[in-house]
Design a protein around this nucleic acid. Structure first.
Length: 596
RNA sequence: GGUCCUGUAGCUCAACUGGAUAGAGCAACUGCCUUCUAAGCAGUAGGUUUCAGGUUCGAGUCCUGACAGGAUCACCA
């Protein structure tokens, strides 16, 4: 039982003994005491005045007296209005620390037997990844790691959108203007090559539209009848008919794109356990339409199209199959949901997809529940906001995007520049220096994108957004590196901090107990992060932890301490902080350097 | 127009799910390197939590209604 639990148990007993009143443990909660008051935990008595039949102050005093007398951890208390501030025996913190220090499974909960899939990234194969994808990938990877830490059996999945009209557009443009260009001959990553032709398509398409308008066509007609678009549509038909030439070009261009993506994913530090390809799944779901009709969940209109009526759930009627019997987006998503379930027997399935698809997933999940799927309640759309630029929304077609590869490269260069300026690479060889720049550059970028609540749209200003000071990745990385430096020195001078003897310690400083308090909170934060699917909880925690450590560091110069027992304790405290930072950062997909 | 999301310091974000005097970072200003790494620490200044009502011991948080920004409402994906 930890401190909080035993205090709460004590409060429960206090209610029984003083007021003869039963309160459930989960009804009682403790809050950390605010800094400006004396104490560690605060119990708010206002809700229980009806039970105590007296004033807030008297109630708090009665409970306080009881706890002081009956709960060993509680050394004293003070009362401010209805707030009961509990002061703990400071040496309790030493025991808390011992418990944490002895536990090798830092922030790893035992298996809960639950299987969960996190689908993220899910790129289109007609263009390179951009800034928005970075948020998606970092989020998905991090949430998967956080779920693992909570004991889930996690499968990371990537549903590649490798077919459709958008890819045909790149293909058509390549046929017209490609001249047999390859990634090698153009010295361009394959995804960038495909993206180049996607942009060319759009440019030429717009020219054709203008030309048609000049001939007196309406805007709408022009858009619909431009020869290039008709060509792309024709190509899609041929692809679906398995036309040899089209399929061969499709395979060729996709293979270029995959090679490019692989490099980008590697740089990002993300990975996948399972790939699904839409070219395999786009026909799925029709049997579910049949099933839905039989179960009466769906209904047919005169023209043969199939619909689901969600008006009782506050939504509209939604099409699930066209009149000509062909699929729409949601048809295949229904099929894919079943496919994923059958492949892995999932309890939960998380979709990391932008918030522009909130409605779509709302509909999809409601349908799967209406169909009585066992995993229906485990479906979750991790919806995140757009990343905007100062110039407005990004548009791939118009080339107004921040490219993922470019941005990562730029971050690494900035980190290199900054590090050299600070003169911090003495003793680094070239390879080590390069590794450090990458660690720092990507750390800054990932932390920037993950520290914000996923739901919120965010503004990214390439010039100003990424900092290296304050609430940033490098600040936390720096704190870690600084601790490692202490540990190296401690080892050098032979401080035994692996199996320290704390018996001679009779006093715990305020900055030490604050730090231990934070360290003991790590597991709780990991749980909250999982419950909310929000890496920002971890990011915020790590910042607070690093901040608190730096306070301790400035407050109590470790190697100035003459008492060897206290010295060893402080080194051990530092070691646990470093390990917690490292573990926490790994949940965000961020590496921490040994020195910087 | 319907639905959903967001609105907190000049800027970027917190606020332990209804608790005390709303906290951090950046930017501005003051201090601290004769050495455990100053990418740090300490401090000053900055707020009618968009607005108006309501619920209650207590509201940034819950409810109602405005206002602002965004998304979405295709036999597109």
């Amino acid at each position: 039982m930890n401190i909080q639990e035993s205090i709460i148990a004590g409060i429960q007993l206090a209610f029984q003994n003083i007021y003869n009143h039963e309160v459930a443990v989960d009804q009682l909660s403790l809050a950390p005491t605010r800094k400006e008051f004396e104490g560690t935990y605060t119990f708010v008595v206002f809700p229980y005045l009806k039970v105590s039949q007296t004033t807030p102050e008297a109630t708090a005093n009665q409970i306080g007296e009881y706890l002081k007398a009956n709960v060993t951890e509680v050394a004293g208390f003070n009362v401010v209005k209805g707030f009961l501030n509990l002061e703990l025996n400071e040496l309790i913190w030493l025991n808390v620390f011992k418990g944490l220090y002895a536990n090798p499974d830092l922030g790893q909960l035992p298996s809960n037997g639950q299987k969960v899939m996190v689908e993220y990234s899910s790129p289109n194969t007609n263009k390179p990844l951009h800034l928005g994808h970075l948020r998606n990938n970092f989020l998905g990877y991090s949430v998967a790691e956080i779920l693992k830490a909570n004991g889930y059996d996690v499968t990371k999945a990537n549903l590649v959108n490798d077919r459709g009209i958008h890819i045909c557009k790149s293909m058509v443009a390549y046929q017209h203007w490609g001249n047999g260009e390859t990634p090698e001959s153009a010295n361009l990553k394959g995804d960038h090559l495909a993206g180049k032709y996607y942009v060319i398509f759009d440019k030429e398409y717009k020219k054709q539209i203008e030309a048609l308008k000049a001939e007196g066509n309406s805007e709408e007609e022009a858009k619909k009848n431009a020869p290039l678009l008709l060509e792309a549509q024709e190509m899609l038909r041929k692809w679906e008919a398995n036309d040899a030439e089209v399929v061969s070009l499709w395979k060729q261009m996709n293979s270029w794109v995959y090679a490019g993506f692989a490099k980008t994913y590697e740089k990002m530090g993300v990975n996948f356990d399972k790939f699904y390809y839409e070219s395999d799944t786009y026909l799925l779901g029709k049997d579910i339409v049949e099933e839905g009709l039989q179960k009466g969940v769906f209904f047919k209109k005169e023209n043969g199209s199939v619909w689901v009526d969600l008006t009782d759930e506050g939504l509209d009627e939604k099409l699930v199959l066209r009149g000509d019997g062909t699929s729409v987006y949601i048809t295949q998503d229904m099929g894919t949901a079943d496919l994923k379930y059958n492949d892995f027997k999932l309890n939960k399935s998380v979709y990391v997809v932008g918030n522009e698809q909130d409605y779509h997933f709302d509909v999809l999940f409601k349908i799967m529940r209406k169909l009585g799927r066992s995993y229906g309640d485990g479906l979750y759309h991790l919806s995140y906001g757009m990343v905007d630029l100062p110039s407005g929304k990004m548009k791939s077609r118009e080339g107004t995007v921040v490219d993922a590869d470019d941005l990562m490269e730029e971050m690494i260069n900035t980190a290199a520049h900054h590090t050299k300026e600070l003169g911090k690479i003495d003793g680094f060889n070239e390879e080590q220096a390069a590794e450090l720049y990458e660690t720092l550059g990507l750390g800054a970028l990932k932390y920037f994108l993950l520290k914000v609540d996923p739901k919120k749209r965010m503004l990214f200003n390439p010039q100003e957004s990424i900092e290296f000071q304050g609430n940033t990745g490098p600040f936390i990385q720096y704190s870690h590196a600084r601790i490692k430096s202490i540990l190296r020195k401690a080892e050098q001078i032979g401080v035994d901090f692996k199996n320290p003897d704390f018996s001679a310690i009779s006093k715990i400083e305020e900055s030490e107990s604050s730090l231990i308090f934070l360290l003991s909170d790590f597991t709780k934060k990991i749980k909250i992060a999982a419950d909310e699917y929000s890496p920002s909880v971890i990011a915020q925690y790590l910042f607070d932890l690093a901040k608190e450590y730096n306070r301790f560091y400035a407050d109590l110069p470790i190697f100035h301490e003459s008492n060897s027992s206290i010295l060893a304790f402080r080194v051990a405290l530092s070691a646990l902080t470093a390990a917690t930072i490292k573990r926490g950062m790994s949940l965000l997909g961020i590496h921490v350097p040994e020195r910087m």
